[in-house]
Design a protein around this nucleic acid. Structure first.
Lengths: 135, 135
DNA sequence: GTGCAACCCGTAGCCACTACGGGATCAAGC
DNA sequence: GCTTGATCCCGTAGTGGCTACGGGTTGCAC
């Protein structure tokens, strides 16, 4: 039997909007602490697991790596004077993201250009192939 | 001894700007055809390998998956009336890229917002952590 | 002929999961 | 109390696109 206010792994995963296997994975890699177990060996999660998993999920949505998240979780411990360290991690990640946007934007322009030429008809060879094939 | 105009794997890789191991990998997964070998077993590449590898590399730079590239290479064979199929692949990829840009742009805005708040001082808790931690 | 760079191959590692399979457990209905 | 079916257990392998490693061969210039 399970104490009140505890969650099975399945309910925890559903509540946080992640895959059940992902929760086990996070435990394996040390992002989620091992929960209590029922007599039969099933995982039994407390509310703090739930908020921790939600934290991880939101950080993943913002594109932080699991390594970043590990550090963020450590810095999120109450009482840590950590805002500047957190800011560093987030600011670095922001730079990464901005760089990726720049790259992808150029890439999209090149793709759009090639695709647009395809639609104009009267092209001897496929413009996309031509773009890729030219030395 | 190696016939004139052929390349070792190392020179081919350098010429195309990819890692030597990547060339072997492309051969393993069927993107590059197996080249001739020297008596001693070393790979000996002809010029057409070079242009094929360059094609692959440019397609990778445009973010096409290896599966996409496999299809593009098949469609790039001379004589194929393939422009519309190529266009389909490229247009789908363009949509993916544009969607990714949209996502990343939102993400960058959220990150920038959290980071900016960090700099304002007079914040009780770290705004980044607060964003991640709130239900 | 000798030295050393370049190559060979198979395998394992990276990230962040996801899937699979065969067996155990849980909870609800009767 | 018993059956049933959902849920959970664990270990392992697969994904994409490489990259690295290591121990052994080959190529080529001197």
């Amino acid at each position: 039997m399970m104490a009140r206010r505890t969650l099975t792994i399945g309910r925890l995963a559903t509540a946080a909007g992640v895959n059940l296997e992902t929760v086990r994975y996070y435990e394996r890699v040390g992002l989620m602490p091992p929960p209590d177990r029922t007599v039969g060996g099933h995982r039994s999660y407390a509310p703090e697991h739930r908020s921790r998993l939600a934290f991880i999920r939101r950080a993943r949505e913002l594109g932080f790596s699991l390594d970043d998240i590990r550090r963020l979780l450590a810095l999120a411990e109450p009482g840590r004077q950590s805002c500047s360290e957190v800011k560093t991690i987030a600011a670095e990640h922001l730079l990464d993201v901005q760089a990726k946007i720049t790259d992808l934007t150029k890439l999209a322009a090149a793709l759009a250009d090639a695709v647009r030429k395809c639609g104009e008809g009267d092209v001897p060879d496929c413009p996309v192939i031509e773009v890729l094939g030219r030395a």
